[in-house]
Simulated scan of single mutants.
Amino acid sequence: MRERHASRDARRAREFEAFVAGAAGRLLHAATLLTAEAPDANPRARRLLALSLAHTYASWDRLHGEDPYDRTRQHLATRFARDAWHRYGALGGARRRPAGTLGRLSPQERLILVLRLYEGVAEEQTAALLGLPVERVRTICDRATATLLHPRPAPAAPVAAEAKAATP
């Protein structure tokens, strides 16, 4: 009996290691896009990925034909959304914006944009995953895309405007 458990555990570990070897790079990139961190300095993305992979490993025997990549991506997205809700409230109220192109977007906009455009998840699946109407997902994705394609210039700092007015 003990040998059978050891053999099953070893097989499970090999299968999971093969999955991680094939999927971890893409999942880490998705997590990095979500957190809007730099690719070479992404501790939040790495933690998000590690927690998502741990969750997948814990439920590995219960997947029963489900795609482990899809399951891990779902957990990654829901964990990011929950963390953003707890950190910023309402997915991005008052917060410090991360640097970089995606930093201009709210966490909710980043999440939907990454799922839709980078991961290729259908609007209906994204809406179901996030508990939003399909129309809302479409609107948020369109707004996020427009923000990235047509960025607004940052408003002038009040100090610079005062200094400009003071010069003769």
Score class of each variant (00 low, 15 high):
Ala128Gln: 11
Arg62Cys: 10
Arg95Gly: 09
Trp60Lys: 00
Leu102Ala: 01
Arg95Met: 13
Leu132Arg: 03
Arg95Val: 09
Val114Trp: 00
Thr126Asp: 03
Gln74Asp: 15
Ala50Arg: 15
Leu34Pro: 02
Phe19Tyr: 12
Ala58Gln: 15
Leu117Phe: 04
Arg44Asp: 14
Asp67Ile: 00
Leu115Arg: 06
Phe80Gly: 02
Ser7Trp: 04
Glu109Leu: 00
Gly100Ala: 03
Arg47Met: 07
Ala13Asn: 11
His64Trp: 10
Ala6Cys: 10
Ala94Thr: 11
Ala18Asn: 11
Arg71His: 13
Ser7Ala: 15
Ala10Tyr: 11
Leu117Ser: 15
Arg11Glu: 13
Ala54His: 13
Asp67Gly: 00
Leu49Trp: 13
Gly100Asn: 05
Thr139Pro: 00
Leu51Met: 09
Ala90Pro: 04
Ala21Glu: 15
Tyr118Pro: 01
Ala31Met: 12
Pro107Ala: 07
Gly92Ile: 07
Arg14Ala: 14
Leu76Asn: 11
Pro107Arg: 03
His64Lys: 11
Leu27Phe: 03
Pro107Cys: 07
Asp67Thr: 00
Leu76His: 12
Ala81Pro: 05
Gln74His: 11
Ala21Met: 07
Gln125Tyr: 03
Leu51Ala: 10
Ala54Phe: 08
Arg79Thr: 10
Ala24Thr: 00
Leu27Val: 04
Glu37Ile: 01
Ala10Cys: 10
Asp83His: 08
Leu53Arg: 00
Glu17Gln: 12
Thr139Lys: 08
Ala30Leu: 10
Tyr57Pro: 03
Leu27Met: 12
Arg110Asn: 02
Glu15Pro: 06
Tyr118Asn: 14
Gln125Ser: 10
Gly92Pro: 03
Ala128Thr: 05
Leu105Val: 04
Asp142Asn: 09
Ser7Thr: 14
Thr78Ser: 15
Ala13Gly: 08
Ala122Glu: 13
Glu109Val: 02
Glu119Asn: 07
Arg11Pro: 01
Ala6Ser: 12
Asp83Gln: 14
Ala81Thr: 00
Ala99Glu: 13
Ala30Glu: 14
Asp61Glu: 15
Ala10Ile: 04
Leu27Arg: 07
Glu123Leu: 08
Thr72Gly: 03
Leu105His: 10
Cys141Ala: 14
Arg73Cys: 06
Phe16Met: 14
Glu124Leu: 08
Ser7Tyr: 05
Gly25Leu: 01
Phe19Met: 04
Leu132Cys: 01
Ala24Asp: 12
Cys141Pro: 02
Ala58Trp: 03
Leu113Phe: 11
Arg12Ile: 02
Ala81Gln: 12
Asn42Glu: 08
Leu33Ile: 05
Ala6Phe: 10
Arg73Gly: 02
Tyr69Trp: 10
Val114Gly: 00
Leu115Val: 01
Ala36Arg: 09
Trp60Phe: 04
Ala50Lys: 14
Glu124Asn: 12
Pro133Asp: 15
Leu111Asn: 05
Thr35Ser: 12
